Amino acid sequence: MLTDERHDVIRGLLLSDGRVVANELAARFGVSEDTVRRDLRELAKAGYCRRVHGGALAPAPVALPISARVEKDADAKTRLAAEAVKLLQPRHTVFIDAGSTNYAIARAIPRNMELTVITNAPAIAAALADHEHVTIIMLGGIYNGELGSVGGNTTVEAVEAIYADLVFLGTCAIDLTFGVSALDAVEAEVKRAMVMQSRALVVAATADKLGLAAPFRVARPEALTHLVVEGDADPDLLADFATQGTTVHHAR
């Protein structure tokens, strides 16, 4: 098989599966692993993949401004939010991280539920402002308008002074091997702190975020306590997450 033909096959696998494994490609193509690694280096240089130990992952997604993310897949996020809030119990202390799906979760919190919510996102605080039974703790820090959140050392230090029952974590990428990841290093640091300071980690994600990896790891896959997904998410991928101990919830 010619180099260009191998590259076409690899790009197709990255598009369909989100990942490739070097030794599997070598066996498939009948070439050495060194040849496959060279193929992956060339594809990574061209922006078609991101190399990791043993293979490669699909390129990291591009971050959209928060205003655009709120409108994107709004119906799906509403369904995910309705399922995610079932994990809440009265008088829980909860981190709600920045993100458009988490914004939908904040809006879906039952009006009669008493909670303490800690957030790094002004939009989420505003969404809960008229909720009579929610105590809002707004974290300080340096505001990033594109992400719609605050970050930096001040934010991390504030998070480390709190312990929560669970965290609703926003993410652009969830991968079975790499885990939960983020595009921005400062954002990832705050997210990691929230995970460390929470009894349970919850991620509600649209299908386009599954099988992807962004540059900065937030949590390993085995740290994911609950994964809330759409009904059409890849069942094989979800089964693998469940094998690692994650409870998978399907939005209706």
Results as ranks from 00 to 15, higher is better:
P59W: 03
A126S: 13
K209L: 09
E222S: 13
L40I: 05
I142M: 06
V85I: 11
G141W: 03
E33Y: 00
A214K: 03
V218E: 10
G231F: 01
A121C: 11
A76N: 05
M194V: 03
E146C: 01
L139S: 05
E146L: 14
F168L: 06
Y143Q: 12
A108M: 07
I66Y: 04
K191R: 02
G47W: 00
R79Y: 07
V156M: 07
R220P: 03
T119A: 10
S149E: 07
E160S: 11
H133M: 11
L210G: 06
A127M: 02
C49K: 03
Y163G: 04
L87A: 03
L88Y: 06
H7V: 08
A60C: 06
T246F: 00
L210F: 02
A129H: 10
D208I: 07
L183T: 14
L14S: 06
S67M: 07
L166Q: 12
M194D: 05
H226D: 12
Y143S: 11
C172W: 08
G148C: 04
R19N: 09
R51K: 08
V85G: 01
L2C: 05
E83I: 06
A26K: 05
A98L: 08
A76Y: 07
R69D: 09
T243E: 13
Y143E: 08
T101M: 05
A104I: 01
K191H: 10
F216N: 10
T225W: 01
A108P: 08
N112L: 01
P90K: 04
A22C: 12
Y163E: 15
A58C: 07
T225P: 06
D130P: 06
A82I: 14
A126G: 02
A74T: 12
V229L: 07
A63I: 14
L80R: 00
A121S: 11
G18P: 04
V159E: 06
A173G: 09
D236H: 13
V52P: 04
T35F: 09
D234Y: 03
V186D: 13
H250M: 12
A22I: 01
V94W: 01
P122Q: 00
D130T: 15
A239I: 05
D34S: 10
N23D: 15
A22M: 02
F178Q: 13
Q197T: 01
D75I: 14
V228Y: 00
A158V: 02
D8I: 13
Q197H: 12
I10A: 03
N102H: 08
K209S: 09
I162W: 10
H249P: 05
A123I: 15
L224G: 02
T101A: 04
G55Y: 04
